[in-house]
Each structure stands twice: as C-alpha cells, then as structure tokens.
Amino acid sequence: MVKNLYIQGQYIKIIGFLLLFLSLAFSVWARVILGKNWSGVIQKVQGQRLITKGPYRYIRNPIYNGIIGGFIGTFIIVGTLASLLGMLIIIVTYILKTIKKERFLVESFGEAYCH
C-alpha cells in the first residue's frame, strides 16, 4: 500500500486539482501566444521575435512555471513520496533550463528582454 505523506481531505484534493488545471491551462495559453516562436529546445528560430503579450506580459517563462505548478498540483492530489520526488526533479530541471534560457534571451534580444 502506498502511504501518503500528509493527511488528504477532499478540499486539499480540490485545491490540488485546481492548481493542476489552471497551471496547465496557463502553459497552453503561453504556448498558443508563442505561435511559431516556440521550439522544444532553446535555439534561435527563423523570424523569432520577443513576445510581450498574453502571459508574457506578466511573467517570464510562463510555460515552465505552468508545468511546475502542474506538478505541484499533482503532488497535492497524490501526496506520495514518488510524487514528491517527481515534483522536485521537475522543479530542479526547469530551474536549470530557465537559467540557460534567460542567458539565451539576453544574448538574443539584449535590452529589449531585460526591460
């Protein structure tokens, strides 16, 4: 039997589900706004331009943040050691990817990205 790391009530699971759903919806919105600027890897895309509308108006890296939020919501719903470890692996991975992407965007867009 898989043991939960904390006491889970119905309301906790609802909060986890809402966080999961809203976070992933936020990521999808960001992806749609990126359009042809999106790439699965950090690289220059032909005709790439700096996007500053939609979720990019409010935060940097909204896709990454949404994915992290989705994994946090999943941990809240599931509550097991495996879900905690998965969440931590994703958080570390996306922090490292964000650092690399920030460098790339500063090099590509300079002052326009920094403001």
Score class of each variant (00 low, 15 high):
Ile77Met: 09
Leu24Pro: 00
Ile42Gln: 06
Trp38Lys: 01
Val41Arg: 13
Glu111Pro: 08
Thr80Cys: 11
Ile76Trp: 03
Gly9Phe: 14
Val78Ala: 09
Asn61Gln: 08
Ile51Cys: 04
Ile77Tyr: 00
Tyr94Gly: 02
Ile68Met: 14
Gly69Arg: 05
Ile14Phe: 06
Lys3Met: 04
Ile67Pro: 03
Thr74Tyr: 14
Ile63Phe: 03
Leu18Ser: 08
Lys13Met: 05
Ile42Ser: 02
Ser108Tyr: 05
Lys97Thr: 03
Leu105Val: 09
Thr98His: 00
Ile12Lys: 04
Ile91Gly: 11
Ile15Glu: 04
Ala30Asn: 09
Tyr11Ala: 10
Leu81Cys: 01
Leu34Tyr: 09
Ile67Glu: 03
Ile91Pro: 11
Gln10Glu: 14
Leu81Gln: 07
Ile72Phe: 14
Val92Gln: 11
Ser27Thr: 12
Tyr56Asp: 04
Ile76Arg: 02
Ile59Gln: 08
Ser27Trp: 04
Val92Tyr: 14
Ile95Ser: 11
Gln46Thr: 14
Leu96Arg: 14
Tyr11His: 11
Ala25Gly: 04
Ile67His: 07
Tyr94Cys: 04
Gly69Phe: 03
Tyr113Arg: 01
Gly40Ala: 11
Ile51Thr: 06
Val2Tyr: 11
Leu96Gln: 10
Arg60Gln: 12
Trp38Met: 02
Thr74Glu: 06
Leu20Gln: 06
Ala82Ser: 12
Leu105Gly: 08
Phe17Gln: 12
Thr93Gln: 09
Gly9Thr: 15
Tyr64Gln: 05
Thr80Ala: 09
Gln48Val: 07
Ile91Glu: 12
Thr98Asn: 02
Val32Ala: 05
Arg49Tyr: 11
Trp29Val: 06
Gly66Ile: 08
Phe26Gln: 12
Ile90Trp: 10
Glu111Thr: 15
Tyr58Phe: 15
Phe71Pro: 06
Ile90His: 06
Val92Met: 12
His115Cys: 14
Leu19Arg: 02
Asn37Leu: 00
Cys114Pro: 00
Gly79Arg: 07
Leu85Glu: 03
Ile90Phe: 13
Ala30Asp: 07
Pro62Phe: 08
Ser23Ala: 13
Lys101Ser: 03
Ile59Thr: 15
Ile33Pro: 00
Gly9Cys: 09
Asn61Ala: 06
Leu5Val: 07
Gln48Leu: 08
Ala82Asp: 07
Thr74Phe: 14
Phe104Gln: 00
Val2Trp: 10
Leu96Asn: 13
Lys44Gly: 02
Leu34Gln: 13
Thr98Pro: 01
Leu34Glu: 11
Ile14Gly: 04
Asn61Lys: 03
Ser108Glu: 15
Phe75Gly: 12
Ile77His: 00
Ser23His: 02
Val2Ser: 08
Glu111Leu: 14
Ile90Ser: 05
Leu18Met: 10
Phe21Pro: 01
Leu18Arg: 01
Ile12Asn: 02
Ile33Cys: 02
Arg103Asn: 14
Leu85His: 03
Lys97Val: 05
Ile12Glu: 05
Tyr11Arg: 10
Pro55Gly: 13
